[in-house]
């Protein structure tokens, strides 16, 4: 994420909001976007009405409330069957906890806004965006990442099928795609192509490898005899 553009460029050129992503097709231009903003387009705007909260005054007096942070605190997360104790701030996302604090860099962060699903991991058996989940909210759940799919050194059948069908080009969306499809097969072992399309509806692949991803998933499920 170190190469992310400034927010203004991001908004004008490649906003991660799904609706805003088709800038070429819809004729969105930086100039048009800024029109009306005059020469004072840039300006920090904080949401007024949000009062500054005095940290010193904080005291959780209610017995059903436990305060964490704002500084780093020790947290134990169960990832791929193994407990990891890390020091993180409450603002740390699950994606950053996995990648930065645990070194599990198989999970990719692409849009960082829940729009591309590249960061998909399983929380228990449910696929979620790790970029939009606070790591603190993964406490008490089983987290499964792409590193957790192989068993006893053998690739998951889905991973084998992805390789066989060459279901990737640049490969950046692949971990998220595989996790979405793995969650589908866990829930529905005999999916149709429509089921696979539905399960991967949130996963964007800019290389356009979707047909091979569908074929690989159907083959792994044994519901298709199509070959690559």
């Amino acid at each position: 994420m170190s190469d992310r553009k400034s927010p203004s460029e991001d908004a004008a050129e490649q906003s991660s909001s799904p609706q805003n992503s088709n800038n070429v097709a819809t004729g969105i231009s930086r100039r048009g976007f800024l029109k009306g903003a005059g020469i004072t387009a840039a300006g920090t705007a904080l949401l007024e009405g949000v009062q500054v909260f005095s940290r010193e005054a904080v005291a959780a007096t209610h017995s059903d409330v436990k305060e964490l942070g704002p500084g780093a605190v020790p947290v134990t997360l169960l990832v791929n069957g193994k407990e990891h104790t890390i020091q993180i701030e409450p603002r740390t996302t699950l994606a950053d906890a996995l990648r930065v604090h645990m070194g599990l860099i198989g999970t990719k962060v692409i849009c960082d806004r829940g729009s591309c699903s590249g960061c998909t991991v399983l929380l228990d058996k449910t696929p979620v965006n790790s970029c939009m989940t606070l790591a603190m909210d993964a406490r008490g759940h089983h987290v499964t990442t792409i590193e957790g799919l192989p068993q006893n050194g053998e690739l998951h059948p889905l991973q084998t099928a992805f390789v066989k069908h060459d279901a990737m080009q640049c490969g950046f969306c692949t971990p998220g795609m595989v996790m979405s499809c793995a969650a589908l097969l866990e829930k529905n072992p005999k999916p149709t192509e429509d089921d696979v399309r539905h399960a991967t509806a949130g996963n964007l692949c800019r290389c356009g490898t979707y047909p091979r991803i569908f074929a690989a998933t159907l083959e792994a499920a044994g519901t298709s005899t199509r070959n690559a």
Binding site: A60, E67, G69, G71, P90
Partner: peptide, 20 residues
């Protein structure tokens, strides 16, 4: 940065809804 107030009950959460 922010403080995360973990709540396990509705009344616990309601006790936190002040000062923004």
């Amino acid at each position: 940065q922010f403080i995360l107030a973990d709540c396990t009950t509705e009344s616990g959460a309601l006790s936190q809804l002040h000062d923004g």
